[in-house]
């Protein structure tokens, strides 16, 4: 699976939302499903899927789907 698809599926699984919800404009205040609990489920999923260890500041900064792509790029993951 390509990194972009892995990322999308990680969001679908962690936030428990349909794939259609996952767009670059998705931000954590924009849907009720993306709360602090879902955020930590998402972080665990991303670390598992991409085999990375994210800095805590990156975990805090990951406030949108687009931002997740940008942060993962720092870890040489191009989504």
């Amino acid at each position: 699976m390509m990194a972009a698809e892995k990322l999308k599926q990680a969001f679908v699984k962690s936030l428990a939302v349909p794939e259609s919800v996952i767009t670059d404009s998705l931000e954590y205040n924009s849907i009720k499903e993306w709360d602090s609990t879902a955020h930590m489920i998402l972080i665990a999923e991303l670390e598992d899927v991409f085999d990375v260890m994210l800095d805590t500041d990156d975990i805090i900064d990951m406030s949108s789907y687009a931002k997740a792509k940008e942060i993962l790029r720092k870890y040489d993951i191009d989504c």
Binding site: S36, H39, M40, I60, M62, S63
Partner: peptide
Amino acid sequence: PQQYRNNIVPF
């Protein structure tokens, strides 16, 4: 602060 409400900071 809104930026600290929905991530790891509340934990």
